[in-house]
């Protein structure tokens, strides 16, 4: 195993200028939740930021996240691949996840999955050829009393789904361009962007005060 301390090495930014400024602002907030010597702990939130901007976690995005947090890219990829919300390859613009855990299953989730497969012409785990839709089965969403439950693009809950309401959901999504999972553009030029106003990169853990509290100013990012 490569130690966490091994520096990530410079990597070009995968973001457009507008994306970059949003990333930098949110990056600052994510890292500020931790004491300076624990800033690598912000890896999950920072991966979320990158994915929200790009639609999925491209190799350059993971390398760049590693660079900004001083984490080797292999470790970034290892973490990213552990969690189901991170997409390591592009999915459809509308990623439909049907919960198939026990309560939803008892309330007919398998019929919902079948209906999706018929409507979209794909099997669970696949993406339509036009890149519009992906379909997958997901684990319990904490919506069991409102079963069956469906999750659209990682964050939107649709509950008490019936075959009819599923049809209208698919029509609604079809009419929308959708962006949250759109495949990312290729990174353009090799340019190292470390963001503005950021403290110099540390490669060695540095010790600060006894608790993180003093070095933390901002609260949960919005």
């Amino acid at each position: 195993m490569i130690p966490l301390q091994t520096p990530g090495g410079p990597a070009p930014s995968p973001f457009s200028p507008e994306q970059q400024s949003r990333f930098d602002a949110d990056f600052g907030r994510a890292v500020a939740k931790y004491a300076a010597d624990h800033r690598r702990a912000a890896l999950l939130p920072v991966l979320h930021l990158a994915q929200d901007l790009l639609g999925w976690l491209t190799e350059p995005a993971m390398a760049y996240v590693g660079f900004r947090l001083d984490i080797p890219k292999v470790r970034v990829r290892e973490v990213a691949s552990f969690y189901t919300m991170y997409r390591l390859k592009p999915v459809g613009r509308h990623a439909i996840g049907v919960c198939n855990s026990v309560s939803c299953w008892a309330m007919g989730s398998e019929q919902i999955i079948k209906r999706c497969e018929e409507k979209l012409g794909i099997r669970s785990g696949e993406t339509t050829r036009d890149g519009q839709f992906s379909l997958e089965e997901v684990a319990c969403l904490a919506a069991c009393g409102y079963a069956p439950a469906v999750l659209v693009n990682n964050y939107r809950y649709v509950e008490n789904v019936t075959p009819q309401s599923l049809d209208s959901l698919i029509e609604e999504l079809r009419a929308k361009p959708g962006n949250s999972m759109a495949p990312a553009p290729e990174p353009k030029k090799l340019e190292i962007n470390r963001g503005q106003g950021e403290a110099p990169r540390q490669t060695e853990p540095q010790t600060t005060g006894p608790s993180g509290a003093t070095s933390v100013q901002t609260s949960g990012g919005k």
Binding site: K33, L44, H48, Y83, T84, A139, N154, V216
Partner: peptide, 14 residues
């Protein structure tokens, strides 16, 4: 008494 509080989002893993 001082207290800071942060929400951190997981990423899908039971």
């Amino acid at each position: 008494f001082d207290l800071e509080m942060h929400v951190v989002a997981g990423a899908g893993a039971y």
